[in-house]
Design a protein around this nucleic acid. Sequence first.
DNA 1: TAAATAGTGTCTATTAGACAATATTAG
DNA 2: CTAATATTGTCTAATAGACACTATTTA
Lengths: 256, 256
Amino acid sequence: MTVDADTGGESRVRPATPDVPGAQGSAPPPPGTWSAQNSAGYPSPAGLTADVVVLTVRDGAVRVLALTTDDGRVALPGGFVGAGEDPADTAARKLTEKTGLRDLYLEQLGAFAAPGRDPRGWIPTVAHLALVPADTTPGDPAAAWIDARAAHDWAFDHREILAAALERVEGKLWWSNVCVGVLPGDFALADARAVYDAVARTTYDPGTFARDLRATGLIEPTGEERRAGKGRPAALYRFASREPAWGAGRRKRVKA
Amino acid sequence: MTVDADTGGESRVRPATPDVPGAQGSAPPPPGTWSAQNSAGYPSPAGLTADVVVLTVRDGAVRVLALTTDDGRVALPGGFVGAGEDPADTAARKLTEKTGLRDLYLEQLGAFAAPGRDPRGWIPTVAHLALVPADTTPGDPAAAWIDARAAHDWAFDHREILAAALERVEGKLWWSNVCVGVLPGDFALADARAVYDAVARTTYDPGTFARDLRATGLIEPTGEERRAGKGRPAALYRFASREPAWGAGRRKRVKA
DNA sequence: TAAATAGTGTCTATTAGACAATATTAG
DNA sequence: CTAATATTGTCTAATAGACACTATTTA
């Protein structure tokens, strides 16, 4: 897992279209920057946002849900955290808006609050990670799946956030049920292997993969079979828990 | 570890003495809550804080630096993030204030922003983790080392933050140089073993420990020796890098 | 010398990776 | 039958844990 997000320095700001509520709404935001002050007279953040890195695996590649901004850049879905709202709820709300899905695998990546990260003002963000089924179609016409590992012109510090998300998923792959969000309720080992192959950027041996995934204790057989086309029918499995969970751990290489 | 901090629900709020600048200063804070509004007219956070879980290992136990509040509870050191300041810098500043140390191992744990976590108002915090040498004496007379795994009456959501910190350290123990902050520049393998024993709550075999820690590639011999009292002199080692780094990985049990 | 601490060597059970062999289906 | 896919079994090298053994110091 090898995974944790210590924020390294990366690409910073430049003007961009906001991906937040109110921006496309009634009152247009001030052209320059927003500021805020608290009741004790000190400057305070002009807002708090929650961004979500929505990942899936399709056609053998990890894909991320991205919105295209007016100036042709790409941005992660996200929005302002309301007063009295938990950022995790904001993230879940945004996720439902963009995918129509609920109760997804969602975990926090961390805070991104470097000065100037948002050209509109002092607006820290709490970044989240979500994994959704491969057949999810974006509800928002401005949203599209793009290759998560290809180069893109990300707005804000979203390139940095995406990098943290990928590192997190790779690191947890064999230690947790992080892929529970991508796989359907019932899946064959071959389905799981395709997902793991894509995330780990390798090609696992089918036999060894089956043995090792079972050994994590994270999955259990449903007793059902699935026959798809030619060969022998595949036994179906499900994750023992769809909530985030840790497995027995496999010492696997993630990179080829 | 292998570890990551997905924030689970835990203890929440209750009134407590603030651990932030200005609180003990000239203008006393309003008794109720603080609020804030941005220039677009929306409510915004009343502030952003950075808290630090400062850990060390002493007398075979993991200890955390805690401040005692007026009402007898304990709180993590922390303070308001200034406008234009990076929370990591705030954390480093607070760390220097409380310990007199600089350039320490410091990484972000994540954002804690549950509604009501701070009774003073909407104040999210960015929690950090730092590890410092065992002989560090708190510069602040109100600060003291307490057993990190014993029960304490923590203010705010600091119990939850501390739990995330401990989980992070345990998980990274054999995969990173996370302990670089606790050990001095030159150390014997027995020193390192005492630290690893305390964090992992186990007792490693000296021989196996030496073999496995060397195998991570994270440490290198200095060529020096140290003779302390009775036995054979110990060869000294140093971490190849004092910056956060990942090693080859050891498949170790962290719990006994 | 004995006692104490540091470090090395060796044995075993487990595990990861490769790959051969077998099983079950469609056509 | 053959082709295709699924699953099981086997072999090997690497690794974790236990522990015996050797090395070097002080008293």
